[in-house]
Amino acid sequence: MKIRVYYEDTDCGGVVYHSNYLNFCERARSELFFQKGLSPHNEDEFFVVKKIEADYIKPARFADVLEVKTQLIKQKNTSLVMNQEIYRADELIFRMAVTVVFLKAMKPAKIPLKLMEIFDENR
């Protein structure tokens, strides 16, 4: 998924504020659903982030065009682990491992097959 860095994403020096990298990755995960005509949140079923390990490699700056790449690393019945990387052109500038848990009625639940198929395409 391509993302342009806007002024609102940066600090006063034009450098992307650290938490916005997480926002960019969240948008990319949501976009996986939207591309299939689905929503990442349905009534009482949705994913929540359980754990993030982030590595800030180089700064992104105002007006940069970035690409977020998402890859499924591990799946369990109720959770997924994904690697997400952000590139500026061919240069890796950020990476993270994120663990998400599927909830139904606010309790961990088995991930439905139709949702697993979304992530299987990103192995």
Score class of each variant (00 low, 15 high):
Met1Ser: 04
Met1Leu: 07
Lys2Glu: 13
Lys2Gln: 10
Lys2Gly: 07
Lys2Leu: 11
Val5Met: 09
Tyr7Phe: 15
Asp9Tyr: 03
Thr10Pro: 02
Thr10Gly: 08
Thr10Val: 07
Asp11Phe: 04
Asp11Arg: 04
Cys12His: 13
Gly13Tyr: 11
Tyr17Thr: 11
His18Met: 04
His18Asn: 07
Ser19Asn: 07
Leu22Ala: 10
Leu22Asn: 07
Asn23Cys: 10
Phe24Arg: 01
Cys25Pro: 02
Ala28Asn: 01
Arg29Met: 08
Leu32Ala: 06
Phe33Ala: 02
Gln35Lys: 14
Gln35Thr: 09
Lys36Met: 10
Lys36Val: 08
Gly37Phe: 03
Gly37Asp: 01
Leu38Ala: 04
Pro40Ser: 01
Pro40Gln: 01
Pro40Arg: 00
Pro40Phe: 03
His41Ile: 14
Asn42Ala: 12
Glu43Arg: 13
Glu43Val: 07
Glu43Phe: 06
Glu43Thr: 06
Asp44Cys: 07
Glu45Asn: 13
Phe47Arg: 00
Phe47Asp: 00
Val48Ser: 03
Val49Ile: 14
Val49Met: 06
Val49Phe: 05
Lys51Met: 12
Lys51Cys: 08
Lys51Glu: 14
Lys51Leu: 14
Ile52Leu: 15
Ile52Asn: 05
Ala54Cys: 10
Ala54Glu: 08
Asp55Cys: 11
Tyr56Gly: 05
Ile57Glu: 08
Lys58Arg: 11
Pro59Gln: 05
Arg61Leu: 07
Arg61Cys: 10
Arg61Met: 11
Arg61His: 09
Phe62Asp: 06
Phe62Ala: 02
Phe62Cys: 07
Asp64Glu: 05
Val65Phe: 13
Val65Trp: 09
Val68Pro: 04
Val68Ser: 01
Lys69Gly: 02
Thr70Ser: 13
Ile73Lys: 15
Ile73Asp: 02
Lys74Glu: 15
Gln75Tyr: 09
Asn77Trp: 06
Asn77Phe: 10
Thr78Tyr: 12
Thr78Asp: 13
Thr78Arg: 10
Thr78Glu: 12
Ser79Asn: 05
Leu80Ile: 09
Leu80Met: 05
Leu80Arg: 01
Leu80Phe: 04
Val81Trp: 06
Val81Thr: 10
Val81Leu: 15
Met82Phe: 08
Met82Ser: 06
Asn83Glu: 15
Asn83Gln: 15
Gln84Asp: 05
Arg88Ile: 06
Ala89Pro: 01
Asp90Met: 14
Glu91Ile: 08
Leu92Ser: 08
Leu92Glu: 10
Ile93Asp: 04
Phe94Glu: 02
Phe94Lys: 00
Met96Ser: 12
Met96Asp: 12
Met96His: 05
Ala97Pro: 02
Val98Leu: 04
Val101Gln: 03
Val101Pro: 02
Phe102Tyr: 15
Leu103Arg: 02
Leu103Ala: 00
Leu103Trp: 03
Lys104Cys: 10
Lys104Val: 02
Ala105Arg: 14
Met106Thr: 09
Lys110Val: 13
Ile111Asn: 01
Leu113Asp: 14
Leu113Arg: 15
Leu113Phe: 13
Leu113Ala: 10
Leu113Tyr: 09
Lys114Ile: 09
Met116His: 02
Glu117Tyr: 04
Ile118Glu: 00
Asp120Arg: 11
Asp120Tyr: 11
Asn122Ser: 12
Asn122Pro: 00
Arg123Val: 11
